[in-house]
Nucleic acid binder design. Structure first.
Lengths: 249, 249
DNA sequence: CGTCCGTTTGAGGATCATCAATGTCCGTGG
DNA sequence: CCACGGACATTGATGATCCTCAAACGGACG
């Protein structure tokens, strides 16, 4: 209902940008006039982070880092899409998150990365040595507060992900995923078009299903006239009412 | 394998304490000598937080706050156990997290709480007005860095939760839950005893199963000689090897 | 001691995983 | 430019697992 309006408004605010400077987006703790995610950093802060960051371009499928390896840097996505997953002993490979532009990832645990992270598309990243970032955050407490806000935002995202995975029906999970994708997508030609940059297998690993189940769920969404799939990477919401209902329950 | 050793070491370090002062535990970003979670706050910082916090006692089942309500305070658990969940339109009530002593919860989104939070046992909380905390964090960047670390730690916890829920087998999910419980538990008489303070229904809502499935999973764990349930709130790991294998895959 | 809520147990049905085969897209090399 | 190869996606049939519904059991509390 009004969440829809909220999300629309957020995407409209989001103007195309060159991504020369690092940027971070999240919903602040306190109330704001702008509903939805907001740019957290001031221009000064963006330049400050840029001065300690290394801009890196990676081709799709490149692995940024592997789980259980020692690392020194955290990352901010400038452009493209990243996935983070874990290799389980049983052969499963659950995707824990997709990272989009203005997201932060790579915060290690006792010096070790906990997940493996890989580029889904060609990406541009800002690479920031943790120790240098620490110094910067200790020197600029207000910058640090923005980061705290961002990590909290990602925690809420992880919780939504958990809710999606707890659902039993495949179509519902898929709808929640597509809904989340819609929130992150920046440039829609048509407002109802969703660009799907990742593979069906990636989606399956994200929502906790098999690729076959994803395929069947897509077909059922199409049969019910809720979503139309023009091609594997492009979806269109036909019945916004039913779509939102599926994706919220 | 070596994770087991790690976790044991962590619990041994954890001494009983009166909880007069707020405390926060997590695994730092950088490497430390102590494997496992660590007390993040210095005595000075604990006093600093205590000076802006209100110590509150709540009886079990008391609701701390409701989702979608405006709130001004965040919380640190001093003693007892809290659950945080969401009311979905379909009647489900997924539990997103259990909070234990030295955990932080209640960080709102645009001034609103996103989940409902309720005491599972009698609890003692430190209640901290967000605006006051903000000021404190802006004045003390090193304190803020500890909080950033804690929230990151909780993000990793949420990811582990997602992994648990993605599993298809009920016994596996239950094993992962019991294993996580074991990590948080402080005082075991016997090293293999696990205290289970929450109801079967709560567990079911946490791991994404029905109470019936939890019940059957417990019985199967018992039948296979992996875990013995002395009573509904007390479990004992009999076959540590199989238990750890179930809980890790 | 009785009630009520949570837990356990059982039988039947729904949904997804698995396995196998076909179909489609994309990038490569001729 | 086209043809080929391989990875990914779809489709179908079967089986395992959990959910649902219903009833009996148990403990906690008044």
């Amino acid at each position: 209902m009004h969440t829809h309006v909220t999300r629309r408004a957020a995407t409209l605010v989001h103007a195309p940008m060159p991504c020369e400077l690092p940027s971070v987006r999240a919903i602040p703790f306190s109330d704001t006039d702008a509903n939805g995610p907001v740019r957290l950093l001031s221009n000064r802060q963006r330049h400050q982070i840029a001065s300690i960051a290394i801009r890196t371009r990676l081709r799709r499928n490149t692995i940024v880092y592997r789980e259980h390896t020692r690392g020194e840097s955290i990352f901010i996505v400038a452009d493209g899409i990243i996935k983070t997953f874990r290799n389980l002993p049983n052969g499963k490979r659950p995707v824990l998150a997709f990272w989009f532009p203005e997201d932060i990832f790579g915060l290690m645990e006792a010096g070790l990365y906990v997940n493996t992270t890989q580029a889904v598309t060609d990406v541009t990243l800002f690479r920031i040595p943790l120790e240098v970032l620490k110094e910067t955050l200790l020197a600029d407490a207000s910058l640090q507060l923005q980061l705290l806000c961002k990590v909290t935002h990602e925690l809420r995202g992880a919780q939504r992900h958990t809710i999606a995975v707890q659902r039993r029906d495949a179509v519902g999970r898929l709808a929640m995923f597509l809904r989340a994708l819609e929130d992150h997508e920046v440039r829609h030609d048509d407002k109802n078009h969703i660009h799907i940059p990742m593979s069906r297998t990636d989606i399956a690993d994200y929502v906790g299903l098999t690729p076959e189940a994803i395929s069947r769920a897509c077909r059922r969404l199409a049969q019910h006239g809720i979503v139309k799939f023009a091609d594997r990477s492009r979806a269109q919401v036909l019945d916004r009412r039913l779509f939102e209902r599926l994706g919220s329950a």
